[in-house]
Design a binder for these strands. Structure first.
Length: 317
DNA sequence: TGCAGTGTTGCTTC
DNA sequence: CGAAGCAACACTGC
């Protein structure tokens, strides 16, 4: 689901279709009149914010789309940036949709519906209408935010303020696939806290950004490290292999078009294929597929998250 | 049938 | 201060 490879896949696809399009309008069914929950202020879940968001966005043009950690950044010509986090079940679709007044919801138009026979298209919560010019509404397309559990977040920030002190993006750790992110830095960042389990640290966005539950399980399996190992106890040679496998598995995720174990979809509604090559994630009770290993994959809750691993070849340091 | 489990983050509590 | 727990929500699968 939406971890670095999924968000990368979506952003790459959006960059092929969105730049240059004008935003004609935006619709949502998420906005609540009196949003009392603090973390939803300044998001589309807040009616007041949505009204302002809609005023700001109408008539602007999309410049380009960028990824930072698991965030999607849509830069606009009005010097503002739409910030989207897919959280657990969110995904973006691009195509032609129609508002069905009878059912009071958006549906893919007939042509697209045939290809998108997918139950998750039911959960449409935000719809942007875009076109090549401010006038040519006839040739519109929609950018659609689907999210079964409604955990996802959509907001907007002035582009220059994105990396202000204490902002959401400012506190994020380095990008794991950045060439400047060396082994030395990787090790240093894992040791920052002086304690903690390797799996939890890998998923901590302030230490390294973009890694979540699935990819952390998979990279630890390949590197032969038990998820509860303390980084300080892991020998350099093993840590080096984790560093290498981290990059490899994330790249494999990207080349597989992401992981569709659950709701994640490409912008055309198609599934990614990374879930077909899982070695541990969601494979509880299955035989460990490492050559010569006699282990069985187990599931254990570690710091509130389910971890999947092989007790035999994944060594506890 | 009912309830445990589901990818993430950030607020609250200790 | 940091770490742990849980809430945000709706569905699936045992």
């Amino acid at each position: 689901m939406p971890e670095l490879p999924e968000v990368t896949t979506t952003v790459k696809a959006l960059n092929k279709v969105l730049p240059g399009l004008f935003v004609l309008d935006v619709w949502t069914d998420l906005a609540k009149k009196d949003q009392k929950i603090k973390q939803f202020k300044n998001t589309l879940k807040d009616k007041k914010f949505f009204n302002k968001f809609r005023r700001d966005i109408k008539g602007t043009k999309v410049k380009n789309v960028e990824r930072r950690a698991k965030y999607i950044l849509i830069h606009l010509s009005n010097k503002k940036t739409i910030l989207i986090h897919l959280k657990m079940t969110g995904h973006l679709l691009f195509g032609k949709y129609e508002f069905n007044k009878k059912e009071n919801k958006w549906v893919p138009n007939e042509k697209e519906r045939k290809e998108l026979r997918d139950p998750y298209n039911r959960f449409i919560h935000v719809v942007f209408t875009l076109a090549k010019s401010r006038q040519r509404r006839a040739s519109y397309k929609n950018l659609v935010f689907c999210d079964a559990r409604k955990f996802g977040k959509v907001t907007m920030i002035p582009t220059t303020k994105l990396y202000d002190k204490d902002s959401t993006l400012q506190v994020l750790g380095p990008e794991p696939l950045d060439n400047k992110f060396t082994f030395k830095q990787f090790k240093k960042r894992l040791l920052i806290k002086n304690s903690g389990k390797i799996k939890t640290l890998l998923m901590n966005q302030e230490i390294i950004s973009g890694i979540g539950n699935i990819y952390s399980d998979e990279m630890l399996w390949i590197a032969g490290i038990h998820p509860e190992s303390q980084p300080a106890n892991i020998p350099d040679s093993t840590l080096k292999s984790l560093y290498k496998e981290m990059k490899e598995i994330l790249k494999k995720g990207i080349s597989s078009g992401g992981d569709s174990t659950s709701d994640y979809r490409h912008i055309d509604g198609k599934k990614g294929s990374f879930h077909l090559s899982h070695k541990v994630y969601k494979r509880k009770g299955k035989k460990c597929s490492k050559r010569g290993c006699s282990g069985v994959i187990i599931r254990k809750v570690i710091n509130g998250r389910s971890a999947h691993f092989c007790k035999i070849h994944q060594k506890l340091f």
